[in-house]
Design a protein around this nucleic acid. Structure first.
Lengths: 247, 247
DNA sequence: CGGCCGGTTGAGTACAATCAATTCTGGTGG
DNA sequence: CCACCAGAATTGATTGTACTCAACCGGCCG
Protein backbone atom coordinates (compact mmCIF):
# COMPACT_ATOMS: atom_id res chain seq x y z
CA UNK A 1 0.00 0.00 0.00
CA UNK A 2 2.97 2.21 -0.51
CA UNK A 3 1.44 4.07 -3.43
CA UNK A 4 -2.21 4.94 -3.82
CA UNK A 5 -3.75 3.22 -6.80
CA UNK A 6 -4.17 6.56 -8.52
CA UNK A 7 -0.51 7.32 -8.78
CA UNK A 8 1.03 4.78 -11.09
CA UNK A 9 0.45 6.10 -14.59
CA UNK A 10 -1.51 8.19 -17.04
CA UNK A 11 -5.26 8.40 -16.64
CA UNK A 12 -8.05 8.87 -19.17
CA UNK A 13 -11.33 10.01 -17.80
CA UNK A 14 -14.38 9.74 -20.07
CA UNK A 15 -17.77 8.18 -20.50
CA UNK A 16 -18.61 5.56 -23.08
CA UNK A 17 -20.57 7.28 -25.86
CA UNK A 18 -22.45 4.06 -26.61
CA UNK A 19 -24.00 3.47 -23.25
CA UNK A 20 -25.45 5.75 -20.59
CA UNK A 21 -22.78 4.86 -18.08
CA UNK A 22 -21.18 7.31 -15.67
CA UNK A 23 -17.92 9.00 -16.45
CA UNK A 24 -15.01 6.97 -15.15
CA UNK A 25 -11.31 6.27 -15.39
CA UNK A 26 -10.87 4.07 -18.44
CA UNK A 27 -7.42 2.60 -18.04
CA UNK A 28 -6.96 -0.43 -15.86
CA UNK A 29 -3.85 -0.98 -13.75
CA UNK A 30 -2.10 -3.04 -16.38
CA UNK A 31 -2.46 -0.40 -19.07
CA UNK A 32 -1.49 2.40 -16.76
CA UNK A 33 1.62 0.53 -15.78
CA UNK A 34 2.47 -0.08 -19.39
CA UNK A 35 2.00 3.57 -20.26
CA UNK A 36 3.91 4.62 -17.16
CA UNK A 37 6.91 2.75 -18.46
CA UNK A 38 7.12 4.87 -21.61
CA UNK A 39 6.09 8.20 -20.13
CA UNK A 40 7.54 10.77 -17.82
CA UNK A 41 5.98 13.06 -15.27
CA UNK A 42 6.45 16.78 -15.74
CA UNK A 43 5.37 19.59 -13.47
CA UNK A 44 4.46 23.02 -14.81
CA UNK A 45 3.93 26.22 -12.89
CA UNK A 46 1.09 28.60 -13.60
CA UNK A 47 1.49 30.28 -17.00
CA UNK A 48 4.21 27.88 -18.15
CA UNK A 49 3.98 26.95 -21.79
CA UNK A 50 3.72 23.20 -22.26
CA UNK A 51 4.16 23.24 -26.02
CA UNK A 52 3.47 25.70 -28.75
CA UNK A 53 1.66 25.53 -32.02
CA UNK A 54 3.82 24.55 -34.93
CA UNK A 55 6.49 22.79 -32.90
CA UNK A 56 7.27 19.22 -33.87
CA UNK A 57 4.83 17.05 -31.94
CA UNK A 58 7.02 14.52 -30.18
CA UNK A 59 4.68 13.74 -27.32
CA UNK A 60 1.09 13.72 -26.23
CA UNK A 61 0.03 14.52 -22.71
CA UNK A 62 -2.32 13.23 -20.06
CA UNK A 63 -3.26 15.69 -17.36
CA UNK A 64 -2.77 14.38 -13.83
CA UNK A 65 -3.63 17.45 -11.81
CA UNK A 66 -4.29 21.12 -12.37
CA UNK A 67 -5.87 22.95 -15.28
CA UNK A 68 -4.40 23.40 -18.74
CA UNK A 69 -5.58 25.73 -21.51
CA UNK A 70 -5.09 25.05 -25.19
CA UNK A 71 -5.22 28.01 -27.51
CA UNK A 72 -4.29 29.32 -30.92
CA UNK A 73 -2.27 32.53 -30.96
CA UNK A 74 -3.72 35.10 -33.34
CA UNK A 75 -1.68 38.11 -34.31
CA UNK A 76 0.51 39.29 -31.45
CA UNK A 77 -2.03 40.41 -28.94
CA UNK A 78 -4.98 38.08 -29.11
CA UNK A 79 -5.53 34.37 -28.78
CA UNK A 80 -8.38 32.03 -29.27
CA UNK A 81 -8.90 29.45 -26.53
CA UNK A 82 -9.86 26.01 -27.83
CA UNK A 83 -10.33 24.19 -24.55
CA UNK A 84 -9.86 24.08 -20.81
CA UNK A 85 -8.49 20.73 -19.73
CA UNK A 86 -8.93 18.98 -16.41
CA UNK A 87 -7.38 15.86 -14.86
CA UNK A 88 -8.07 12.81 -16.99
CA UNK A 89 -8.06 14.79 -20.22
CA UNK A 90 -5.49 14.17 -22.92
CA UNK A 91 -3.99 16.80 -25.17
CA UNK A 92 -1.24 17.44 -27.65
CA UNK A 93 -3.13 16.85 -30.86
CA UNK A 94 -1.00 17.32 -33.92
CA UNK A 95 -1.46 17.87 -37.60
CA UNK A 96 1.18 16.78 -40.06
CA UNK A 97 3.52 16.10 -37.20
CA UNK A 98 3.21 19.54 -35.62
CA UNK A 99 1.09 20.73 -32.74
CA UNK A 100 -2.21 22.19 -33.91
CA UNK A 101 -2.42 24.55 -30.96
CA UNK A 102 -0.45 25.80 -27.99
CA UNK A 103 -0.93 24.69 -24.41
CA UNK A 104 -0.15 26.38 -21.16
CA UNK A 105 -0.74 25.70 -17.50
CA UNK A 106 -3.59 27.77 -16.09
CA UNK A 107 -2.87 26.58 -12.58
CA UNK A 108 0.23 24.70 -11.62
CA UNK A 109 -0.18 21.32 -13.23
CA UNK A 110 1.30 17.85 -13.35
CA UNK A 111 1.18 15.99 -16.64
CA UNK A 112 2.27 12.67 -18.03
CA UNK A 113 4.34 13.18 -21.13
CA UNK A 114 4.04 10.27 -23.56
CA UNK A 115 6.39 10.21 -26.57
CA UNK A 116 4.34 9.51 -29.68
CA UNK A 117 6.81 7.01 -31.12
CA UNK A 118 6.52 4.75 -28.08
CA UNK A 119 2.80 5.35 -27.84
CA UNK A 120 2.28 4.32 -31.44
CA UNK A 121 4.05 1.07 -30.75
CA UNK A 122 1.71 0.38 -27.85
CA UNK A 123 -1.36 1.42 -29.78
CA UNK A 124 -0.51 -0.90 -32.62
CA UNK A 125 -0.54 -3.86 -30.25
CA UNK A 126 -3.17 -3.34 -27.62
CA UNK A 127 -6.71 -3.18 -28.99
CA UNK A 128 -8.08 -2.60 -25.53
CA UNK A 129 -5.99 0.49 -25.01
CA UNK A 130 -6.96 1.69 -28.46
CA UNK A 131 -10.58 1.34 -27.57
CA UNK A 132 -10.15 3.52 -24.51
CA UNK A 133 -8.44 6.14 -26.62
CA UNK A 134 -11.26 6.00 -29.14
CA UNK A 135 -13.78 6.63 -26.39
CA UNK A 136 -11.82 9.60 -25.15
CA UNK A 137 -11.45 11.07 -28.63
CA UNK A 138 -15.19 10.78 -29.16
CA UNK A 139 -15.66 12.77 -26.01
CA UNK A 140 -13.24 15.40 -27.21
CA UNK A 141 -15.21 15.72 -30.42
CA UNK A 142 -18.44 16.33 -28.54
CA UNK A 143 -16.57 18.82 -26.38
CA UNK A 144 -15.39 20.69 -29.44
CA UNK A 145 -18.91 20.68 -30.84
CA UNK A 146 -20.25 21.95 -27.56
CA UNK A 147 -17.72 24.74 -27.72
CA UNK A 148 -18.85 25.56 -31.22
CA UNK A 149 -22.39 25.61 -29.92
CA UNK A 150 -21.42 28.34 -27.47
CA UNK A 151 -19.66 30.32 -30.16
CA UNK A 152 -22.70 30.47 -32.45
CA UNK A 153 -24.77 32.20 -29.80
CA UNK A 154 -25.09 35.87 -30.51
CA UNK A 155 -26.17 37.37 -27.19
CA UNK A 156 -23.37 37.74 -24.67
CA UNK A 157 -25.47 36.62 -21.70
CA UNK A 158 -26.37 33.42 -23.52
CA UNK A 159 -22.74 32.67 -24.25
CA UNK A 160 -21.81 33.27 -20.67
CA UNK A 161 -24.71 31.22 -19.35
CA UNK A 162 -23.79 28.33 -21.63
CA UNK A 163 -20.20 28.60 -20.53
CA UNK A 164 -21.14 28.51 -16.87
CA UNK A 165 -23.46 25.61 -17.55
CA UNK A 166 -20.64 23.75 -19.29
CA UNK A 167 -18.25 24.33 -16.41
CA UNK A 168 -20.83 23.23 -13.90
CA UNK A 169 -21.53 20.00 -15.79
CA UNK A 170 -17.85 19.26 -16.16
CA UNK A 171 -17.45 19.84 -12.46
CA UNK A 172 -20.20 17.46 -11.41
CA UNK A 173 -18.99 14.93 -13.99
CA UNK A 174 -15.66 15.07 -12.24
CA UNK A 175 -17.40 14.36 -8.98
CA UNK A 176 -16.58 17.72 -7.44
CA UNK A 177 -20.16 18.26 -6.49
CA UNK A 178 -21.10 21.51 -4.85
CA UNK A 179 -23.53 24.31 -5.34
CA UNK A 180 -20.84 26.70 -6.48
CA UNK A 181 -19.14 26.79 -9.85
CA UNK A 182 -15.40 27.28 -9.64
CA UNK A 183 -13.69 29.07 -12.51
CA UNK A 184 -9.95 28.47 -12.50
CA UNK A 185 -9.38 30.72 -15.50
CA UNK A 186 -9.41 34.50 -15.65
CA UNK A 187 -11.92 36.72 -17.44
CA UNK A 188 -9.68 37.18 -20.43
CA UNK A 189 -9.49 33.42 -20.96
CA UNK A 190 -13.26 33.17 -20.70
CA UNK A 191 -13.59 35.94 -23.25
CA UNK A 192 -11.22 34.16 -25.63
CA UNK A 193 -13.12 30.91 -25.16
CA UNK A 194 -16.66 32.18 -25.69
CA UNK A 195 -15.71 34.60 -28.44
CA UNK A 196 -16.38 37.92 -26.75
CA UNK A 197 -14.29 40.89 -25.75
CA UNK A 198 -13.18 41.14 -22.17
CA UNK A 199 -15.51 44.10 -21.73
CA UNK A 200 -18.48 42.14 -23.02
CA UNK A 201 -17.82 39.27 -20.62
CA UNK A 202 -17.65 41.70 -17.76
CA UNK A 203 -20.93 43.30 -18.79
CA UNK A 204 -22.58 39.92 -19.19
CA UNK A 205 -21.55 38.99 -15.65
CA UNK A 206 -22.93 42.29 -14.43
CA UNK A 207 -26.20 41.68 -16.29
CA UNK A 208 -26.63 38.24 -14.72
CA UNK A 209 -25.76 39.64 -11.31
CA UNK A 210 -28.24 42.49 -11.42
CA UNK A 211 -30.92 40.11 -12.68
CA UNK A 212 -30.12 38.01 -9.59
CA UNK A 213 -29.67 35.02 -11.89
CA UNK A 214 -26.27 34.36 -10.40
CA UNK A 215 -24.20 35.61 -7.50
CA UNK A 216 -20.46 35.65 -6.99
CA UNK A 217 -18.63 34.94 -3.77
CA UNK A 218 -15.54 36.25 -5.51
CA UNK A 219 -14.38 36.48 -9.11
CA UNK A 220 -13.86 32.73 -9.37
CA UNK A 221 -16.82 31.34 -7.46
CA UNK A 222 -20.25 31.62 -9.05
CA UNK A 223 -23.56 30.36 -7.78
CA UNK A 224 -26.74 30.04 -9.80
CA UNK A 225 -29.74 31.44 -7.98
CA UNK A 226 -32.48 31.55 -10.58
CA UNK A 227 -32.18 28.23 -12.36
CA UNK A 228 -35.27 28.83 -14.51
CA UNK A 229 -33.99 32.13 -15.84
CA UNK A 230 -30.57 30.59 -16.33
CA UNK A 231 -31.97 27.76 -18.44
CA UNK A 232 -34.02 30.15 -20.51
CA UNK A 233 -30.84 31.93 -21.58
CA UNK A 234 -29.30 28.72 -22.77
CA UNK A 235 -31.93 28.51 -25.43
CA UNK A 236 -34.67 26.32 -24.05
CA UNK A 237 -32.91 23.29 -25.43
CA UNK A 238 -30.60 22.18 -22.68
CA UNK A 239 -29.59 19.52 -25.16
CA UNK A 240 -26.04 19.63 -24.08
CA UNK A 241 -25.78 16.97 -21.48
CA UNK A 242 -22.65 15.49 -20.08
CA UNK A 243 -22.99 12.21 -18.34
CA UNK A 244 -22.83 12.69 -14.63
CA UNK A 245 -21.83 10.11 -12.11
CA UNK A 246 -25.29 9.61 -10.74
CA UNK A 247 -28.10 9.80 -13.25
CA UNK B 1 -11.47 -8.23 -61.41
CA UNK B 2 -15.20 -8.28 -61.20
CA UNK B 3 -15.41 -5.49 -58.69
CA UNK B 4 -13.22 -2.46 -58.62
CA UNK B 5 -11.09 -2.34 -55.51
CA UNK B 6 -12.96 0.66 -54.26
CA UNK B 7 -16.29 -1.05 -53.94
CA UNK B 8 -15.99 -3.72 -51.31
CA UNK B 9 -16.52 -2.00 -48.00
CA UNK B 10 -16.44 1.09 -45.85
CA UNK B 11 -13.70 3.62 -46.37
CA UNK B 12 -11.97 6.01 -44.02
CA UNK B 13 -10.12 8.86 -45.61
CA UNK B 14 -7.71 10.84 -43.46
CA UNK B 15 -4.13 11.88 -42.98
CA UNK B 16 -1.90 10.70 -40.19
CA UNK B 17 -1.60 13.53 -37.67
CA UNK B 18 1.88 12.38 -36.66
CA UNK B 19 3.56 12.60 -40.00
CA UNK B 20 3.28 14.98 -42.93
CA UNK B 21 1.90 12.35 -45.24
CA UNK B 22 -0.78 12.93 -47.84
CA UNK B 23 -4.40 12.21 -47.10
CA UNK B 24 -5.28 8.67 -48.10
CA UNK B 25 -7.65 5.78 -47.64
CA UNK B 26 -6.69 4.14 -44.37
CA UNK B 27 -8.37 0.75 -44.49
CA UNK B 28 -6.68 -2.09 -46.33
CA UNK B 29 -8.62 -4.72 -48.26
CA UNK B 30 -8.77 -7.15 -45.38
CA UNK B 31 -10.27 -4.63 -42.98
CA UNK B 32 -12.73 -3.36 -45.53
CA UNK B 33 -13.87 -6.88 -46.20
CA UNK B 34 -14.29 -7.53 -42.52
CA UNK B 35 -16.28 -4.35 -42.06
CA UNK B 36 -18.31 -5.09 -45.15
CA UNK B 37 -19.46 -8.32 -43.57
CA UNK B 38 -21.10 -6.51 -40.66
CA UNK B 39 -22.38 -3.48 -42.51
CA UNK B 40 -25.08 -2.70 -45.02
CA UNK B 41 -25.25 -0.20 -47.84
CA UNK B 42 -28.00 2.37 -47.74
CA UNK B 43 -28.90 4.97 -50.32
CA UNK B 44 -30.45 8.30 -49.38
CA UNK B 45 -32.02 10.88 -51.64
CA UNK B 46 -31.40 14.58 -51.28
CA UNK B 47 -32.91 15.94 -48.05
CA UNK B 48 -33.51 12.49 -46.55
CA UNK B 49 -32.88 12.29 -42.83
CA UNK B 50 -30.30 9.65 -41.99
CA UNK B 51 -30.80 9.78 -38.24
CA UNK B 52 -31.95 12.36 -35.80
CA UNK B 53 -30.57 13.71 -32.57
CA UNK B 54 -31.70 11.87 -29.50
CA UNK B 55 -32.54 8.61 -31.25
CA UNK B 56 -30.87 5.49 -29.90
CA UNK B 57 -27.55 5.23 -31.70
CA UNK B 58 -27.53 1.72 -33.10
CA UNK B 59 -25.13 2.35 -35.95
CA UNK B 60 -22.34 4.52 -37.17
CA UNK B 61 -21.89 5.46 -40.80
CA UNK B 62 -19.18 5.74 -43.38
CA UNK B 63 -19.92 7.93 -46.36
CA UNK B 64 -19.32 6.28 -49.71
CA UNK B 65 -20.56 8.98 -52.06
CA UNK B 66 -22.43 12.23 -51.90
CA UNK B 67 -22.52 14.94 -49.24
CA UNK B 68 -24.06 14.67 -45.80
CA UNK B 69 -24.76 17.46 -43.33
CA UNK B 70 -24.84 17.01 -39.57
CA UNK B 71 -26.74 19.56 -37.55
CA UNK B 72 -28.42 20.30 -34.28
CA UNK B 73 -32.02 21.44 -34.50
CA UNK B 74 -32.68 24.55 -32.45
CA UNK B 75 -36.21 25.61 -31.71
CA UNK B 76 -38.53 24.85 -34.60
CA UNK B 77 -37.21 27.07 -37.30
CA UNK B 78 -33.45 27.22 -36.99
CA UNK B 79 -30.65 24.73 -36.96
CA UNK B 80 -26.97 24.83 -36.35
CA UNK B 81 -24.82 22.91 -38.82
CA UNK B 82 -21.92 21.05 -37.21
CA UNK B 83 -20.27 19.65 -40.30
CA UNK B 84 -20.40 18.90 -44.00
CA UNK B 85 -19.26 15.37 -44.69
CA UNK B 86 -17.66 13.98 -47.83
CA UNK B 87 -16.78 10.48 -48.99
CA UNK B 88 -14.39 8.79 -46.60
CA UNK B 89 -15.79 10.61 -43.58
CA UNK B 90 -17.45 8.77 -40.74
CA UNK B 91 -20.38 10.04 -38.70
CA UNK B 92 -23.01 8.99 -36.22
CA UNK B 93 -21.29 10.09 -33.03
CA UNK B 94 -23.33 9.37 -29.95
CA UNK B 95 -23.48 10.46 -26.36
CA UNK B 96 -24.88 8.18 -23.71
CA UNK B 97 -26.13 5.89 -26.41
CA UNK B 98 -28.04 8.52 -28.34
CA UNK B 99 -27.06 10.51 -31.39
CA UNK B 100 -25.53 13.85 -30.50
CA UNK B 101 -26.78 15.48 -33.68
CA UNK B 102 -28.98 14.87 -36.70
CA UNK B 103 -27.78 13.97 -40.17
CA UNK B 104 -29.33 14.43 -43.55
CA UNK B 105 -28.30 13.94 -47.15
CA UNK B 106 -27.37 17.21 -48.85
CA UNK B 107 -27.03 15.50 -52.19
CA UNK B 108 -28.16 11.98 -52.85
CA UNK B 109 -25.73 9.83 -50.94
CA UNK B 110 -24.65 6.26 -50.40
CA UNK B 111 -23.49 5.25 -46.95
CA UNK B 112 -22.24 2.16 -45.17
CA UNK B 113 -24.29 1.53 -42.07
CA UNK B 114 -22.27 -0.24 -39.37
CA UNK B 115 -24.13 -1.49 -36.28
CA UNK B 116 -22.24 -0.41 -33.18
CA UNK B 117 -22.56 -3.74 -31.43
CA UNK B 118 -20.79 -5.58 -34.22
CA UNK B 119 -18.31 -2.76 -34.65
CA UNK B 120 -17.38 -2.83 -30.98
CA UNK B 121 -16.62 -6.51 -31.28
CA UNK B 122 -14.29 -5.83 -34.18
CA UNK B 123 -12.66 -2.86 -32.48
CA UNK B 124 -11.94 -4.91 -29.39
CA UNK B 125 -9.91 -7.37 -31.44
CA UNK B 126 -8.15 -5.54 -34.22
CA UNK B 127 -5.61 -3.01 -32.98
CA UNK B 128 -4.80 -2.04 -36.55
CA UNK B 129 -8.36 -1.09 -37.30
CA UNK B 130 -8.52 0.80 -34.03
CA UNK B 131 -5.49 2.77 -34.99
CA UNK B 132 -7.11 3.84 -38.24
CA UNK B 133 -10.18 4.95 -36.35
CA UNK B 134 -8.02 6.91 -33.92
CA UNK B 135 -6.40 8.73 -36.81
CA UNK B 136 -9.76 9.61 -38.28
CA UNK B 137 -11.12 10.81 -34.97
CA UNK B 138 -8.08 13.06 -34.54
CA UNK B 139 -8.89 14.56 -37.88
CA UNK B 140 -12.49 15.13 -36.88
CA UNK B 141 -11.30 16.94 -33.78
CA UNK B 142 -9.16 19.30 -35.81
CA UNK B 143 -12.12 19.78 -38.16
CA UNK B 144 -14.33 20.73 -35.26
CA UNK B 145 -11.70 23.13 -33.97
CA UNK B 146 -11.35 24.65 -37.41
CA UNK B 147 -15.10 25.14 -37.45
CA UNK B 148 -14.92 26.83 -34.08
CA UNK B 149 -12.20 29.03 -35.51
CA UNK B 150 -14.60 30.24 -38.17
CA UNK B 151 -17.33 30.84 -35.65
CA UNK B 152 -15.20 33.16 -33.49
CA UNK B 153 -14.65 35.53 -36.36
CA UNK B 154 -16.83 38.59 -36.04
CA UNK B 155 -16.86 40.10 -39.51
CA UNK B 156 -19.08 38.34 -41.99
CA UNK B 157 -16.61 38.56 -44.88
CA UNK B 158 -13.94 36.90 -42.77
CA UNK B 159 -16.25 34.06 -41.86
CA UNK B 160 -17.19 33.55 -45.45
CA UNK B 161 -13.59 33.74 -46.64
CA UNK B 162 -12.54 31.18 -44.06
CA UNK B 163 -15.40 28.96 -45.07
CA UNK B 164 -14.46 29.13 -48.72
CA UNK B 165 -10.86 28.51 -47.82
CA UNK B 166 -11.89 25.45 -45.82
CA UNK B 167 -13.95 24.07 -48.66
CA UNK B 168 -11.16 24.65 -51.12
CA UNK B 169 -8.65 22.85 -48.94
CA UNK B 170 -11.02 19.95 -48.40
CA UNK B 171 -11.53 19.77 -52.11
CA UNK B 172 -7.85 19.64 -52.98
CA UNK B 173 -7.26 17.19 -50.12
CA UNK B 174 -9.84 14.98 -51.80
CA UNK B 175 -7.91 15.27 -55.01
CA UNK B 176 -10.64 17.11 -56.86
CA UNK B 177 -8.18 19.75 -57.96
CA UNK B 178 -9.50 22.64 -59.97
CA UNK B 179 -9.44 26.39 -59.80
CA UNK B 180 -13.09 26.56 -58.84
CA UNK B 181 -14.58 25.85 -55.45
CA UNK B 182 -17.75 23.81 -55.61
CA UNK B 183 -20.34 24.34 -52.89
CA UNK B 184 -22.82 21.47 -52.73
CA UNK B 185 -24.83 23.10 -49.94
CA UNK B 186 -27.23 26.02 -50.20
CA UNK B 187 -26.80 29.47 -48.72
CA UNK B 188 -28.94 28.66 -45.73
CA UNK B 189 -26.70 25.74 -44.81
CA UNK B 190 -23.64 27.95 -45.16
CA UNK B 191 -25.29 30.52 -42.90
CA UNK B 192 -26.05 27.88 -40.29
CA UNK B 193 -22.48 26.60 -40.49
CA UNK B 194 -20.63 29.90 -40.17
CA UNK B 195 -23.06 31.39 -37.68
CA UNK B 196 -24.60 34.17 -39.72
CA UNK B 197 -28.07 34.97 -40.99
CA UNK B 198 -28.90 34.08 -44.57
CA UNK B 199 -29.01 37.77 -45.38
CA UNK B 200 -25.55 38.34 -43.94
CA UNK B 201 -24.08 35.50 -46.01
CA UNK B 202 -25.63 36.95 -49.12
CA UNK B 203 -24.22 40.40 -48.35
CA UNK B 204 -20.80 38.93 -47.63
CA UNK B 205 -20.82 37.22 -51.04
CA UNK B 206 -21.83 40.49 -52.63
CA UNK B 207 -19.03 42.32 -50.81
CA UNK B 208 -16.42 39.84 -52.04
CA UNK B 209 -17.84 40.02 -55.55
CA UNK B 210 -17.79 43.79 -55.80
CA UNK B 211 -14.26 43.84 -54.37
CA UNK B 212 -13.40 41.42 -57.20
CA UNK B 213 -11.90 39.10 -54.60
CA UNK B 214 -14.00 36.26 -55.91
CA UNK B 215 -16.27 35.58 -58.86
CA UNK B 216 -19.14 33.16 -59.28
CA UNK B 217 -19.99 31.12 -62.34
CA UNK B 218 -23.26 30.29 -60.63
CA UNK B 219 -24.36 30.06 -57.02
CA UNK B 220 -22.41 26.90 -56.39
CA UNK B 221 -19.18 27.60 -58.24
CA UNK B 222 -16.80 30.16 -56.80
CA UNK B 223 -13.40 31.23 -58.01
CA UNK B 224 -10.86 33.22 -56.08
CA UNK B 225 -9.39 36.04 -58.11
CA UNK B 226 -7.49 38.15 -55.63
CA UNK B 227 -5.66 35.63 -53.51
CA UNK B 228 -3.79 38.30 -51.54
CA UNK B 229 -6.95 40.10 -50.52
CA UNK B 230 -8.58 36.78 -49.76
CA UNK B 231 -5.79 35.73 -47.42
CA UNK B 232 -5.85 39.06 -45.67
CA UNK B 233 -9.47 38.47 -44.71
CA UNK B 234 -8.62 35.15 -43.13
CA UNK B 235 -6.54 36.96 -40.57
CA UNK B 236 -3.01 36.90 -41.85
CA UNK B 237 -2.43 33.57 -40.14
CA UNK B 238 -3.27 30.99 -42.73
CA UNK B 239 -2.36 28.54 -40.00
CA UNK B 240 -5.17 26.25 -40.87
CA UNK B 241 -3.62 23.81 -43.22
CA UNK B 242 -5.06 20.53 -44.31
CA UNK B 243 -2.67 18.06 -45.75
CA UNK B 244 -3.01 17.96 -49.46
CA UNK B 245 -2.20 15.05 -51.64
CA UNK B 246 0.92 16.55 -53.08
CA UNK B 247 3.02 18.53 -50.64
C1' DC C 1 3.58 54.33 -1.10
C1' DG C 2 3.51 53.61 -6.00
C1' DG C 3 2.95 50.90 -9.86
C1' DC C 4 0.95 47.17 -12.29
C1' DC C 5 -2.23 43.81 -13.71
C1' DG C 6 -6.81 42.23 -14.02
C1' DG C 7 -11.08 43.83 -14.25
C1' DT C 8 -14.98 47.23 -14.56
C1' DT C 9 -17.49 50.99 -16.51
C1' DG C 10 -18.76 54.72 -19.92
C1' DA C 11 -19.58 56.90 -24.65
C1' DG C 12 -19.72 56.44 -29.39
C1' DT C 13 -19.51 53.50 -33.46
C1' DA C 14 -19.75 49.66 -36.47
C1' DC C 15 -21.69 45.67 -37.90
C1' DA C 16 -24.99 42.05 -38.34
C1' DA C 17 -29.93 40.70 -37.08
C1' DT C 18 -34.50 41.29 -38.31
C1' DC C 19 -38.39 41.98 -41.12
C1' DA C 20 -40.13 42.63 -45.33
C1' DA C 21 -40.26 43.46 -50.20
C1' DT C 22 -38.26 42.01 -54.56
C1' DT C 23 -35.64 39.37 -57.83
C1' DC C 24 -33.57 35.33 -59.48
C1' DT C 25 -33.43 30.37 -60.69
C1' DG C 26 -34.68 25.94 -61.78
C1' DG C 27 -38.25 22.93 -62.70
C1' DT C 28 -42.91 21.86 -64.68
C1' DG C 29 -46.46 21.78 -67.85
C1' DG C 30 -48.77 23.77 -71.64
C1' DC D 1 -40.08 27.02 -76.62
C1' DC D 2 -42.18 29.73 -73.50
C1' DA D 3 -45.13 30.87 -69.43
C1' DC D 4 -45.51 30.07 -64.99
C1' DC D 5 -44.65 28.76 -60.28
C1' DA D 6 -42.25 27.94 -55.82
C1' DG D 7 -38.35 28.10 -53.33
C1' DA D 8 -33.93 30.21 -52.87
C1' DA D 9 -31.47 34.25 -52.76
C1' DT D 10 -30.88 39.19 -52.83
C1' DT D 11 -31.58 43.74 -51.34
C1' DG D 12 -33.37 47.66 -48.44
C1' DA D 13 -34.40 50.05 -44.00
C1' DT D 14 -34.25 49.90 -39.29
C1' DT D 15 -32.85 48.33 -34.80
C1' DG D 16 -30.06 46.15 -31.44
C1' DT D 17 -25.94 44.50 -29.51
C1' DA D 18 -21.22 44.01 -28.95
C1' DC D 19 -16.82 46.21 -30.21
C1' DT D 20 -13.50 49.82 -29.59
C1' DC D 21 -11.16 53.09 -27.05
C1' DA D 22 -10.40 55.09 -23.01
C1' DA D 23 -10.85 56.24 -18.26
C1' DC D 24 -11.16 54.35 -13.83
C1' DC D 25 -11.07 50.94 -9.82
C1' DG D 26 -9.01 47.57 -6.58
C1' DG D 27 -6.03 44.29 -4.97
C1' DC D 28 -1.19 42.60 -4.72
C1' DC D 29 3.63 42.96 -4.73
C1' DG D 30 7.64 45.19 -4.35
Amino acid sequence: MALASNSIGPIIHASDPWSPSPRRQLLDERKRARLARISSIVRFEKNDRIYHKGAVAEAVFSLKSGVVTTYVPIAKTSQYVTAFLYPGDIFGLSEEGRYANSAKATTSAVVYRVPVAALQRLLGKDADLDFDVIIKLCEEITQAQRHARILVQKRAVSKLAMFLDLQERLQTARGEAGSEIFLPMDRTAIADFVGLSLAAVSRAFRALLTRRTISCRDRRHVKINDRADFESLIGGDGGLSISRGGA
